[in-house]
Amino acid sequence: MIHLQNIRKRFRRPDGGWFDAVCDTSLSIGAGEVFGLIGFSGAGKSTLLRLINLLERPDGGAVIVAGQDLTALDAKALRRARQQLGMVFQQFNLMANRTVAGNIAFPLEIAGWSAADIASRVAECLEIVGLADRAEHYPAQLSGGQKQRVGIARALAPRPKVILADEPTSALDPKTTQSILDCLKDINQRFGVTVVIVTHEMHVVRSICHRAAVLDAGSVVEVVEVNGAEVDARSALARSLLEAA
């Protein structure tokens, strides 16, 4: 579903030099997979995730999603492609002046759906994330966990093939974290949506990922398999992340 081929990304440092945030990385993520990106702070997890929907443009390499090289698309085609890639954020990033329903409707309005289709799809998504009774609330009236459910419903609304989630539970308490992870897992299983999830917690990987890439200093150190709750790790870094959890 997602193939990153020899991706490179560097940023200008304040002193004028360059900083390699992602160096020559290749990664393949299968359709229907829940794939983790794990590593310590500054490892390049967010950058790698943002390269998948081209929020960051790679300095080299190809980003192939559902058979399409996104780096080769013009602005308009890229916008259409992005409608197939939902995104969930650590800070939720909901629109404060739109209701819950309005937030979920947003990507559908963007994609040009009819009002009737939007209304029924919004109701469906609210049902999926268990917020049917909150449709007319504003984000300010919700708890963190509820806000993230809205974020997930919004990402899910246009029936994307992929959902990209950047530390979706890092602003939440442990109990809420588990319910959000269950929600993502449920979506993955019911609708076959591929999920790529960034985290610095091994327990997130254990609880929902099929596989995970361990990142360090902009490179993939190892791709680990998760069997049940067992993580089959070889690298020292993966082991230290396991112990930290």
């Binding site: 916008r79 492609a81 992005r82 995104m87 990033n93 909901l94 629109m95 990507p107 963007i110």
Partner: peptide, 18 residues
Amino acid sequence: IPRGVVEAAEAMGASPMQ
């Protein structure tokens, strides 16, 4: 306006005018 909110719209494929 938080930058992240604009970024979320970009990620959803919104055009500059939208």
